[in-house]
Design a binder for these strands. Structure first.
Length: 230
DNA sequence: TGAGTCAAAGCGCGAT
DNA sequence: ATCGCGCTTTGACTCA
């Protein structure tokens, strides 16, 4: 029996990492939760019995009678090999499936089911992380929105008694709508408003424009989550 | 001991 | 016909 990583070989491995976000921290597996039936020294014989029983049950299930099947629990070695294989390719062609089943002393159907469930777990985890990322994004946008609203209020307040600002080019009074107050230097500017700047910044970041959000696929989100601009 | 969790497996459906 | 996927069931297991 080989020595396995302490984290458990059956844990999900994804490339996404969100700073400050501990995803699925209590991802349990039998090896860390406590006594694992597969760790019992005599388990190899038991496992063989289970597999044999499983194969018989498959035949039994075809005629619809017989005792309910005993549920197979994969050994750590089987799980490790399956995980290793899963890292290489998430789907198996029939040949690979057959070979892996032979190597693991399992039925091809069991290998197939394992891959199916594994893909589902991967996807679930991916979805959870995307959800977490979107939550953070939402929070960030909410804060930004609040800030901009405040700014708008301030600008509206300033408009009540607008000072006459002459254009440096034409020396004529500028319309108040083209004016804005720089919150940092407290100067009135006529170039671009802070709203424009925020919009530009969002666009540069690939931020919350309608098109960007709608195309927030798993891959794009993955890359965003890896280096969140929040 | 019962509730909760995890994972293997069953089943039906759509895509190819 | 086959395969992958989503949903569900079921059995093994842990923990309060």
């Amino acid at each position: 029996m080989a020595v396995f990583p302490p984290t458990g070989s059956s844990s999900l491995e994804l490339t996404i990492s969100v700073p400050g976000f501990s995803s699925y921290p209590s991802l349990p597996n039998s090896s860390v939760r406590g006594l694992d039936i597969n760790q019992v020294p005599s388990i190899q014989a038991d496992q063989e019995e289970w597999i044999t029983a499983g194969m018989e049950d498959e035949e039994d299930s075809s005629n619809g009678s017989g005792p309910p099947r005993k549920k197979l629990r994969l050994t750590k070695e089987q799980s490790r090999l399956l995980e290793e294989s899963f890292r290489q390719h998430h789907t198996l062609n029939p040949k690979q499936k057959e070979a892996l089943a032979m190597q693991l002393k399992l039925r091809p159907r069991q290998v197939e089911v394992w891959f199916q469930n594994r893909r589902a777990r991967s996807k679930l985890k991916q979805t959870e992380m995307e959800c977490e990322y979107l939550k953070r994004w939402f929070g960030s946008l909410t804060e930004q929105n609040r800030r901009l609203q405040r700014e708008v209020e301030e600008l509206r307040a300033m408009k009540v008694g607008p000072p006459t600002v002459l254009s440096p080019h034409s020396c004529e009074p500028l319309p108040a709508s083209t004016l804005t107050m720089c919150p940092r230097c407290e100067r009135v500017t006529t170039t671009t408003t802070t709203l424009d700047r925020d919009r530009d910044r969002d666009r540069d970041r690939g931020g919350p424009t309608k098109t960007n959000i709608s195309s927030a696929s798993a891959t794009t989100l993955s890359s965003k989550v890896a280096t969140p601009a929040l």
